[in-house]
Structure formats: structure tokens, C-alpha cells
Design a protein around this nucleic acid. Structure first.
Lengths: 188, 188
DNA sequence: GACACCGTGTTGGCTATACAACAAACAGTT
DNA sequence: AACTGTTTGTTGTATAGCCAACACGGTGTC
């Protein structure tokens, strides 16, 4: 059902989300308390608990939101273009939420969003490669993982360097690197 | 009594205030509807009416707030300095709320804030002059009005020109102009 | 004049949030 | 171990805000 959410709920979730993002810029989630999060958001703590189990839950919800967004974008891509991966589209999305991605993709070690983005891209690329190439599924899995992981690290590095190239440039690079690998596979 | 206001009320008033200020940048209050104000603020209209009588009431409250703030600043000034008018202090305050002042002081014709600021400064300067000079109250009234009106117009012009001088510079100019006039009166 | 549309001011019922308080768990100190 | 301070998760009550609806007044069109 497409019932509109009460604006109070919308607001509460929004400020909690923004506040967690802000705190995550300063310290890892393990060093953040629900108390200070609510103080920053100016939201009563019991209200926080009526929405979320804890701040890890909130973070998970944020990540889910992002993944859903990206999934939507990828669905749109399925419909009409031939590019290997819709990298430019994804980069535009990432730039739009640069602060979030910088915080969440760069966090010490691999966290959930990193894994989720990778799995999303991986699943998409595997399907794409299987439709376009006659290669064993086994090999496609590895190839896809190779391309996706490489691409993600490139993107993280790019964000870290303050996006010193245009989206178009970076997308071109990623596609070139991905396609070169593909040519190698074709000659198997 | 110093009872803390419920944070919901605080938030509601704040967004309504900010939204009215934003709309006033685009059009005069007579062209603004309560409906669009509430839409912009994302606040239910009946909530608006539980806080304010109408949007003119809201504007009046905003102005009162500003006057009270300035009054506080002037009280502090009374306590410890010799300057004719605490212009630098006032300019700092005005810069801090530049957007508000630009909108409200510049509006077509004289509006309430213009009058209120003038009366506040006038009252202050009259008291000040009477303590420091032996001049007829009558003359002081005129003199004060002269200085205050001139100063306010200078400030409006300064805001309009994007504050092309530092606060210190403008304060210096205003004080010099005011004092020159004062010297003229002394030789009466 | 009739009609449609829009904004206003108001109302009643419901929902979300605030607030204070409590017990428990945890961490650090002596 | 005892103590202190902090955070957590929860609870009950009160408050503020939301929403939909209504009647009314004003405006413009036919």
C-alpha cells in the first residue's frame, strides 16, 4: 500500500539519519552512543527506540536504502543501454551522496555497505556477462568479482582524492580496464 | 519562570520562521499565503494556527525577537563603554542576521522592524546624550532622530552593496558623522 | 446569478513524540 | 568487592502535531 508516511516520522528519521552520518565522520559506530546521537538530532531517546532497535539498526537501514536506490538505478539501466556496467549512472549517484559514501565505504575494514554494493554489482554483472558471453558460470563468477572489486576500490580512491577526474573519465577508465580483462577471457 | 520549551514547539516555530523569511525574499507578505508557508515548512496548517494568529502575527513575533536581542545587546553596552553608539556591536549582530535584515529593512516603504529599530536606537541615544550633554530635551530628540535615521540608511545601503566595508570601517564612519554633528551642537 | 476553485479559520479524533523515571548493565576507580 | 558514573532499554503519562473535514468568504468565469 502506498500510504504516505506521517511527516513527523519522516522528519524524525531524517534527522536521526543525518546525525548518525555526521557522527560517523568523526568516529566509528562502536564509539557512538545512542544518547549523543539523540542529543545531536534533538530527538528524544525513547522516540529513537520507537523507530530503531539501536544505532546499528539505523545504520543498516541507511545502507538498505542506498542499495535499493542503486538497485532501482540498475533496473532502469537494464532497459536500454549496451554498456558493460552503467558506471556513469552509478558515479552520478555516488557523487550525489558523496559524504555518505566517503564515510561508509572507507570505514576500517569491510563493512556492510561495502559488501552490499559489491554483491549488488556482482549479481548484476554476472547476469549481464552470462547473457552476452558463452563462458562457464564458474569463470564468470570470478571474473565479475575481479572487475567489481577493482572498480569499487577505484571509486573509493577517487572519492578520497576529492574526485580529481570527471565522472565520464573515471567511467571510461573502469570500462576500459573491465573490457580488457574480458578480451583476455575471450581468447581462452 | 524559566521553563524550557518543549523541543517540538521550538522546532515548529523555527521552521515557520525560517520559511517566512525565505518567502519574504521572493515577495511581500501580502502576496504570501499561510497555505504555502506551511507547505514550505512542512508543518500542518492547524499547527501553524495553534502558534500564531496569522502570518502577520508571525512576522511581528520575529521582529519582536530581533528587537529584544538588540535591546539586550544595548543593555550590555550601557555597562562599560564610552562610545556614542555601540555601532560595531550592532553591526556584528546585523551581519549575523544579514538575510533577515536585508529582507525586513529593505521592504517597500517603512515597515515595523524599521520603525522598531529606529525607536530603539533613538530611545537609547536620547538617554545617552542627555547624560553626556547639557542640551534641551527638545533639541536632543531632533538630533537623535537625525543621527539614527542617517545611520540606519547607511546600514541598509551597506547591506545592499554586499557589505563592501568592514564592520569596523562602517562603525568608524557612522561615529565620525554622528560626532561631527555633535560638535556643531556644542557650539550652540 | 450559478458554479468552481482557492485560501482561511476551525474542529475532533488520532498519532507521534516528549519527558521523567526506573532498573539493569557496563566501565572505571579505589 | 564496593562504589560511582554513564548508557541502555523500557514504561506511563502528557503534550504537540497531524490529518481530514467543514463552513465560509473571495475571486473569476460563463
Amino acid at each position: 500500500m502506498n500510504t504516505k508516511m506521517d511527516r513527523r516520522k519522516k522528519y524524525t528519521r531524517m534527522v536521526l539519519k543525518d546525525s548518525l552520518m555526521q557522527l560517523l565522520k568523526e568516529k566509528p559506530i562502536s564509539a557512538i552512543t545512542v544518547k549523543e546521537l539523540c542529543e545531536l538530532a534533538d530527538i528524544n531517546r525513547s522516540t529513537f527506540y520507537s523507530h530503531y532497535g539501536d544505532h546499528y539498526d539505523l545504520l543498516s537501514k541507511i545502507e538498505e536504502e542506498i542499495i535499493e536506490d542503486m538497485q532501482e538505478k540498475l533496473q532502469m539501466f537494464n532497459m536500454w543501454t549496451e554498456e558493460l556496467i552503467p558506471i556513469e549512472m552509478i558515479l552520478e549517484y555516488i557523487v550525489d551522496k558523496k559524504d555518505v559514501f566517503l564515510v561508509l565505504l572507507k570505514e576500517n575494514g569491510e563493512n556492510n555497505l561495502h559488501k552490499r554494493v559489491r554483491n549488488l554489482a556482482h549479481g548484476f554483472l554476472v547476469n549481464h556477462l552470462m547473457r552476452m558471453h558463452s563462458i562457464e558460470k564458474d569463470k564468470i563468477e570470478y571474473l565479475s568479482m575481479f572487475i567489481v572489486s577493482g572498480s569499487i576500490q577505484m571509486i573509493i580512491s577517487w572519492l578520497d582524492r576529492g574526485m580529481d577526474k570527471s565522472e565520464k573519465e573515471l567511467a571510461g577508465m573502469i570500462n576500459t580496464f573491465a573490457n580488457k580483462g574480458l578480451l583476455g577471457v575471450e581468447s581462452l
